[in-house]
Design a protein around this nucleic acid. Structure first.
Lengths: 257, 257
DNA sequence: CCCTTTTCACCTAGGTGGTAAGAT
DNA sequence: ATCTTACCACCTAGGTGAAAAGGG
C-alpha cells in the first residue's frame, strides 16, 4: 500500500512533508504476513571474524568481506515520490520490537509453567500450522543495541532516489550481540517491525535545530516478522522456497511462470 | 609507484595539494606493461539493449542490468593519502589517447602500403611475440565521445577514501559508439592512458571559479594499454589466464600459491 | 586477410533451506 | 525438549578466454 505515515506528520519541512513511499512486492509481503513472516538470523561465519590469508593477489576490493549473515526475504523495497529532486537525502531503516514478549513455537502450555502459553493479542491465531502456533513465552530479552542500516547509495539527490525502486538488499540480520560489521542485531524468537526513514540533508550550519522537521518515517504493518534461527512454520518455509530464486534448488515439481 | 603527479601542480587548493595516490598491484601492472598490455573492448549484449521480461517477480534491484562489456584486468586500484578527512571528494577516471595512430598486429609491411609498418616511437619494440608485433597502421579513428567514470562511492569524505584501497572494478570498456550505459568508449586497435582524478567538492556558492584549483590528477605510465576486441599477443593471454581468478578454468598445470 | 561478434564451458562469489550435530 | 550452529548441495549472477562464425 501507499505511504504508511510516521508519527508527528505536523511541523515537517517542505523537503519531506510531501514524501511518500509505496511498498514494492506488497502482495508477496501480505502472503507471508498471513502465515506469520519469519526471518532467519545467524551469527557471522569465520569469514567475518578474520581475514583469510593469500587472497589478495589480484584486484578484488579487499572490503567488505563475505558474510554468512542473512538478508531479508522478501527484500524491503519502496518506490519514492514527493521528494525535492535537487535536495540531498539519506535513506535508512531500523527495526523496533513489536512487543515486550519472547515466543516459542509449540503445542500450547502442556505441562509448562503457568505464565506461558498465552497467545499474544497482537498475534493473529492463524499464525499456526497444524496444531502448532506461536505462543508467548515470557518477557523479552534485553533489547539488542539499536542499530540502523543506511542505504549504501546515501546520500543522493531526490531525483535519483525517485528514478527507480529503492532496494535494501544489502541489509543483513544477525543475532550476534557483538557483531562488528554494522549488521542489524535482533533477538531470535522476538517480533519486529521494520521502519523506513527519509532524512533531508539540511545544508544549514545549525541544522541540528531542525532535525525533527527534516525526516519522515514509514512503517508497513505487512512487513512485520518473527526473528528465528531456523524456520518453525512449515508453510513459511514452503513459501520462501516457492518465491525466492536462490532457493530454487528445493522446489519440487511444476514451475509457475 | 607513488604519486604520478598531474600537470599544473601549482595553485592547488589546500584540500588537494597534498593528495597522493599509490597504484596497487604495481608489479602485476609492470609485468603486463613489459609485454604490452591489451584490454578487451566489446559491444553490450542483448541484456543491455532491452530488459528481458518475467524477471522482476521477487526482490532484485531492477538496475543496473547485467552487462557483457568487459572490465579491466588488472583492476585499477589506488591507495590514497593526504586528503582532508572531513572534506567531500569525488573520484573518477578517464582515458586519453596516447597518440594519434591506429595499430595492427602483424609481420611488418610485407606487401602493404608504404605508410604502414612503422614502429611507433612510444611503442617499445619488445611489444612483440615471435616475429609479430604492434605496427602503426595509419591515423587514429575520430576520437570516441570522451567519457568519465565516477567511482560509485562518490561523493565521500576523505577519511573514507583513505581508509581502504579504492578499486575501480565497476568500470567497463566498450567499443560501442552509441553506448547508452555510461561505459567508457574506446576505439579498438588504439592506445590509451588511464587517468585518475581527485576532485574536492567545494561547498562555496561560487565554486566554479575555483574548479581548476580543486582537483588533482594522476597518471601511471605502467597502466597504459592497447584496446583490442581479441587478444593478439599470446603472452598477454597467458599472463591474464595466470593472474585473473575468473580465468582459472584455462590454466594448465601446477598452481602457484 | 584481418578484425569483430557470438556462443560456450568453466570459473568466482555468494544467497538458499536441509540436515545433523551441538548447546543449554 | 528446544533452540542454535556448522556444513552441504544446489541455486543465481556474472567475469574469463576459446573457438567458431560473421563482416568488410
Amino acid at each position: 500500500g501507499w505511504a504508511g505515515e510516521g508519527p508527528g506528520a505536523g511541523g515537517k519541512s517542505r523537503h519531506v512533508c510531501h514524501a511518500a513511499a509505496r511498498l514494492e512486492m506488497g502482495s508477496l509481503w501480505e502472503e507471508f504476513n498471513r502465515l506469520g513472516t519469519e526471518m532467519i538470523v545467524t551469527k557471522a561465519g569465520r569469514w567475518e571474524l578474520g581475514w583469510p590469508g593469500g587472497l589478495q593477489r589480484w584486484g578484488a576490493p579487499p572490503f567488505p568481506p563475505p558474510s554468512l549473515c542473512r538478508r531479508m526475504f522478501p527484500t524491503f523495497q519502496v518506490k519514492l515520490s514527493g521528494l525535492d529532486p535537487l535536495a540531498d537525502y539519506v535513506l535508512l531503516m531500523d527495526f523496533i520490537p513489536l512487543d515486550d514478549k519472547r515466543y516459542r513455537w509449540g503445542w500450547g502450555n502442556g505441562g509448562r509453567g503457568s505464565d506461558l502459553g498465552e497467545l499474544s493479542p497482537s498475534l493473529p491465531c492463524r499464525y499456526a500450522f497444524h496444531s502448532s502456533s506461536w505462543l508467548a513465552a515470557g518477557r523479552a530479552e534485553p533489547a539488542a543495541p539499536g542499530r540502523v542500516h543506511f542505504h549504501p547509495d546515501s546520500p543522493a539527490k531526490g531525483a535519483q532516489w525517485m528514478r527507480q525502486i529503492v532496494s535494501f538488499d544489502k541489509l543483513k540480520l544477525t543475532n550476534n550481540l557483538l557483531d562488528d560489521n554494522g549488521h542489524i542485531i535482533l533477538n531470535s524468537m522476538h517480533r519486529y517491525q521494520p521502519r523506513f526513514h527519509v532524512v533531508f540533508v539540511d545544508p544549514r550550519r545549525d541544522s541540528e535545530r531542525f532535525a525533527h522537521q527534516n525526516f519522515k518515517s514509514f512503517s508497513f504493518p505487512e512487513t512485520q516478522f518473527m526473528a528465528v534461527t531456523a524456520y518453525q512454520n512449515h508453510r513459511i518455509t514452503q513459501l520462501k522456497i516457492a518465491s525466492n530464486p536462490f532457493a530454487k534448488g528445493f522446489r519440487d515439481g511444476d514451475p509457475e511462470p
